[in-house]
Simulated assay, not measured.
Amino acid sequence: MGAVRIDVTRLHDTWMEVAFPRQLDASSVLGKWQPETTPQRIAYKLWAAIGIPLVLFGYPLLLVGFATRYYATRLDSAVTRIGVLGVLLVATLVWGTLTVITRVQLSTEAFLAVGAASVVAIASAGLAALFSKVGGRATSVLLAYPFAMTALFLPPVVAALFTPSLGEVIFPNSTELAVWILDTLLAVGGINDWLRANFTLEGTGYVLMWFGLAIPTGWLLGLLVALADVIRPKPDD
């Protein structure tokens, strides 16, 4: 419970830092800033009160950030050891082997499915590894995490385009997810109506849908990892 208390306190201090100086990691010399006038005290307490429900809502997301950082750190260590070309070679070896096995043992349709999925997976994995090493945190959040999610999301969807049995599982569930997103998250300003009028969820539409989901999902995970670094910095930070 001690670690949870520290995390929650730092999360609230981070919220306070948005509006007031020296709230998070205040120096031992100056200490944490305190309001001096009545308007400052009112604003300070009001801002602190607003932050309480946000912290309660944000803490589970912070835990997701911790978990994502844990696995991302290990993947990053692997990329450091073998390099971007190594990642491409490993991805090519794994997916190439699966493609060859499919060609020998299964139908031409299945072979095309796995082959198409392989191209998507290899390219996305390589780009994710590249952008995780080029630039800083912003590049990782904006590019590395989205491509990593693309490598995870798109191969099964691409394969489903060529494999009816797989499509029977992926496409109906994708449709249900799309309907939920349109009726909830995108039911603002007529966005859902515009999407329904201009796009049809069939064929490559499913690929575009999951690519569209991979990008913001990657951004969200990247931001949560960045928040985790602020709340509980890694030893080498």
Score class of each variant (00 low, 15 high):
Leu30Phe: 02
Leu30Arg: 11
Leu30Glu: 14
Leu30Met: 13
Gly31Asp: 02
Gly31Lys: 07
Gly31Phe: 15
Gly31Arg: 04
Gly31Cys: 04
Gly31Pro: 05
Lys32Val: 14
Lys32Gly: 12
Trp33Glu: 04
Trp33Ile: 07
Gln34Leu: 07
Gln34Ile: 13
Pro35Asn: 06
Pro35Asp: 09
Pro35Gln: 03
Pro35Met: 02
Pro35Ser: 08
Glu36Thr: 15
Glu36Asn: 15
Glu36Phe: 08
Glu36Ser: 11
Glu36Leu: 08
Glu36Ala: 08
Glu36Trp: 06
Thr37Ser: 14
Thr37Arg: 09
Thr37Asn: 02
Thr37Gly: 03
Thr37Asp: 08
Thr38Gly: 11
Thr38Trp: 14
Thr38Gln: 14
Pro39Trp: 03
Pro39Cys: 06
Pro39Arg: 10
Pro39Met: 05
Pro39Ile: 06
Gln40Ala: 01
Gln40Trp: 01
Gln40Thr: 13
Arg41Leu: 07
Arg41Lys: 08
Ile42Tyr: 15
Ile42His: 09
Ala43His: 06
Ala43Met: 14
Ala43Cys: 10
Ala43Val: 00
Ala43Trp: 12
Tyr44Trp: 14
Tyr44Gly: 07
Tyr44Asn: 10
Lys45His: 01
Lys45Val: 15
Lys45Leu: 15
Lys45Pro: 05
Lys45Phe: 12
Lys45Thr: 11
Lys45Ile: 10
Leu46Arg: 15
Trp47Met: 05
Trp47Asp: 10
Trp47Ala: 13
Trp47Leu: 03
Trp47Gly: 12
Ala48Tyr: 09
Ala48Ile: 07
Ala48Trp: 15
Ala49Tyr: 06
Ala49Pro: 08
Ala49Cys: 06
Ile50Asp: 12
Ile50Gly: 05
Ile50Glu: 04
Gly51Lys: 08
Gly51Thr: 07
Gly51His: 06
Gly51Ile: 09
Ile52Asn: 12
Ile52Ala: 12
Ile52Leu: 11
Ile52Glu: 06
Ile52Lys: 05
Pro53Lys: 01
Pro53Glu: 13
Pro53Ser: 09
Pro53Ile: 09
Leu54Cys: 05
Leu54Arg: 02
Leu54Gly: 02
Val55Met: 09
Leu56Ile: 09
Leu56Ala: 09
Leu56Cys: 02
Leu56Phe: 13
Phe57Lys: 09
Phe57Pro: 00
Phe57Ala: 15
Phe57Trp: 10
Phe57Leu: 10
Gly58His: 01
Gly58Gln: 09
Tyr59Glu: 00
Tyr59Cys: 11
Tyr59Ile: 04
Pro60Met: 00
Pro60Gln: 01
Pro60Ser: 00
Pro60Ile: 03
Pro60Glu: 00
Leu61Gly: 03
Leu61Phe: 14
Leu61Arg: 10
Leu61Trp: 03
Leu61Pro: 07
Leu61Tyr: 10
Leu61Cys: 09
Leu61Thr: 03
Leu62Ala: 07
Leu62Lys: 07
Leu62Ile: 08
Leu62Gly: 05
Leu63Lys: 06
Leu63Asp: 01
Leu63Tyr: 07
Leu63Gln: 01
Val64Arg: 02
Val64Gly: 06
Val64Phe: 04
Gly65Cys: 11
Gly65Val: 01
Gly65Arg: 13
Gly65Leu: 09
Gly65Ile: 05
Gly65Phe: 00
Phe66Glu: 04
Phe66Pro: 00
Phe66Val: 02
Phe66Gln: 09
